[in-house]
C-alpha cells in the first residue's frame, strides 16, 4: 500500500490526518516539523508527502524545496496544507515545487479525495 509522510506541528491535526489515511489503508508516518520530516524522508521512501506550511524550526515551504532537491523526491507528489486566506501561500508552495494543496479546514472525505487524486 502507498506510504505517506504527514508533517504538521499540531498534534491534533497530525493525528486526524494520520487516523483518516490509516483508516483508508495507507501506511502513514508522522513528523512534527520540516526538519524532522526531512530526516525521516532521507532514510525512507514515500509515495506522497503532506505538509503543513507554518511550522517551527523548518516550515513546509523549505521542506518542499529541500525534498525536491533530493533525487528520490524529484517527482514525488507533495501536498501543502493551507488556509483559504493565504492565496499567496498556495503559490509559494507551488513555486517551491509542491504538487498541490489541500485547503484547511478540511474533513476526512475531502482529504481522502485529494490524496486519491495524486495517488490514483
Amino acid at each position: 500500500m502507498a506510504s505517506i509522510l504527514a508533517v504538521d506541528d499540531s498534534a491534533s491535526m497530525r493525528q486526524m490526518v494520520s487516523f483518516t489515511l490509516k483508516g483508508a489503508g495507507y501506511d502513514v508516518t508522522e513528523a512534527k516539523d520540516g526538519q524532522e520530516a526531512l530526516q525521516i524522508a532521507k532514510s525512507n521512501s514515500y509515495n506522497l508527502v503532506i505538509t503543513d506550511i507554518n511550522m517551527p524550526i523548518m516550515d513546509g515551504i523549505t521542506l518542499t524545496k529541500e525534498l525536491r532537491s533530493l533525487p528520490a523526491y524529484k517527482f514525488t507528489p507533495i501536498l501543502t496544507l493551507t488556509t483559504e486566506s493565504s492565496g499567496e501561500k498556495k503559490m509559494a508552495g507551488k513555486q517551491a515545487g509542491a504538487t498541490g494543496w489541500i485547503v484547511k479546514p478540511f474533513n476526512p472525505d475531502q482529504l481522502l479525495a485529494t490524496v486519491k487524486k495524486v495517488l490514483g
Binding site: 506541528d9 486526524m16 496544507l81 488556509t83 478540511f106
Partner: peptide
Amino acid sequence: RSAHSIKGGSGTF
C-alpha cells in the same frame, strides 16, 4: 504560528 494552528485546528474540528 500559534494563532494559525489554533485557527486551523478549530476549523477542522
